[in-house]
Amino acid sequence: MKQLLIVIALLLAAPMGAVAAAQPATQDDFVPAGSLPPAETLPAAPMVIAAYGFVWVAVLAYVGFLWRRLQKVEQELRDLERRVAER
């Protein structure tokens, strides 16, 4: 019983640890921008380009996907209409 409780406690603690790790660390003092690690001084321009680029790519990919499905259905429709007319 005791072992089972330990296993349950560990299972519950694992996701909590993951959630805690996902939270940003608290900061109690001011840090000058120059002394920040490289990861904290990310340039904004590539990120803005990535975000806008993603929007364009996603929309164009969807339009292409829609167009392909439409062509396929139109072709099938023409074939079926021909077969119905031949009967």
Binding site: V19, A22, Q23, P24, E40, L42, A44, M47, A50, A51, F54, V55, A58, V59
Partner: peptide
């Protein structure tokens, strides 16, 4: 689009990609 552009913005503005 929202779920991809949001985290890109968050990474720079909040310092994290995602917050639960």
């Amino acid at each position: 689009i929202v779920l991809v552009t949001g985290p890109i913005w968050a990474r720079k503005a909040w310092g994290v990609w995602w917050q639960w």
